[in-house]
Design a protein around this nucleic acid. Structure first.
Length: 347
DNA sequence: TATACGTGGTC
DNA sequence: TGACCAAGTAT
């Protein structure tokens, strides 16, 4: 098996097995990819599964069919539509990027220019230039790292191995069909060369794969062990006015859940100081929302209060119940609402 | 180079 | 059930 045969082998497989995805131009189609849809899908797919992205992509593409439409959207509308997808800096950067692209009249086509846009890093710049503009960029994501580590039986742990794996990937990236090739390697990683129990028997690269020959595919890629997650504590304050309005605030742009609608809370720490957003008689419901973020566990106690029509909160604004959509909250805050006693939620 | 940054599925 | 993991980026 010669190295130059590998891309062709993979493209043959992709021609027969490419998944049908809402943002994808099927192999063999003459249609031109829409850079806006490619960009939108790639940003959504950062550290996020295809299954989670699909419905969000459909909604965004329907509400804002072009980058000009998105550039003209209200910040709050975009954040509300992104709620539940996670990594909210992506949504803030999405809007910044849309406005920059719209003002310059379209997406740049080359890797270096794409890299300067907000929310577009090495992976996304390579993916857009390859998939939307047919450039032979080296597309490196978690899938490609895993596939390359196995193909070459590379035991150096990540992230140390990144340069080695990148050079392996670069050696396979050709001028022919770079967009299809990039998607093919990622599809291979997502559906066959999976992290656990890869389906080597049906892999188009089973013969050249060095890890398969050595029987090491299940242990690759090696990774440096992760730190344990600490547990932090906090209190979420759910205030409901006599007319049913709920007290919410928009979190600061920087930091966790930045820019998202949320119940006022204390700090999240070992021993948070109480910080009720309203002078009222607060009740401890005795229940807590448990949530795990990337780097810590959180236990958020839920305190509730009812407020008169004249109530003036220190923080946040009362949102009329008719305008309140739990689906516009990030998942942690939606959990808090779901755990709030039914008798209060019905007020 | 290391850390902050979400969420849901899987085993 | 808890740890791992996913089409990463910003700082």
């Amino acid at each position: 098996m010669r190295d130059e045969d590998l891309p062709g082998l993979l493209l043959d497989w992709y021609d027969r097995h490419a998944r049908d995805l809402p943002w994808r131009i099927p192999p063999g189609s003459n249609a031109a990819p829409d850079p806006y849809r490619i960009w939108l899908s790639e940003v959504m797919l950062q550290q996020t599964t295809v299954a989670a992205v699909k419905s969000y992509f459909e909604r965004f593409a329907t509400i804002w069919p072009t980058v000009q439409d998105l550039a003209g959207a209200e910040d709050a509308a975009v954040m509300a539509e992104w709620a539940g997808l996670g990594y909210y800096a992506r949504a803030r950067n999405l809007l910044k990027c849309a406005r920059e692209v719209a003002s310059r009249g379209g997406f740049p086509t080359d890797y270096e220019s794409l890299l300067t846009l907000p929310g577009i890093g090495p992976y996304t710049a390579a993916a857009i230039s390859a998939i939307a503009f047919g450039q032979p960029s080296v597309v490196m994501d978690g899938n490609v790292e895993r596939v390359m580590s196995r193909l070459h039986d590379e035991h150096t742990p990540l992230p140390q191995a990144k340069p080695i794996l990148h050079s392996h990937a670069a050696a396979l990236t050709l001028r022919t069909r770079p967009g299809d090739y990039a998607q093919a390697v990622m599809d291979l990683g997502a559906t066959i060369c999976t992290p656990k129990s890869p389906a080597c028997g049906i892999c188009p690269w089973r013969d050249p794969c060095r890890a398969r020959a050595a029987g090491t595919q299940g242990e690759l890629p090696k990774k440096t062990p992760k730190k344990p997650k600490p547990t932090r504590l906090g209190i979420a304050y759910v205030a409901i006015r006599e007319d049913g309005a709920v007290l919410l605030e928009t979190r600061p742009d920087k930091g966790l859940l930045g820019g998202m609608l949320a119940w006022p809370t204390t700090d999240w720490s070992d021993d948070p100081a109480p910080a009720p957003p309203l002078d009222a008689t607060w009740q401890d419901t005795g229940t807590e929302a448990r949530h795990t973020f990337t780097h810590f566990h959180l236990r958020l106690a839920i305190h509730t209060a009812t407020a008169p029509a004249s109530a003036e909160p220190h923080r946040g604004v009362f949102v009329p119940r008719a305008d309140f959509r739990p689906s516009s909250l990030p998942t942690l805050m939606r959990k808090v609402w779901d755990l709030t006693p039914e008798t209060l939620r019905r007020l």
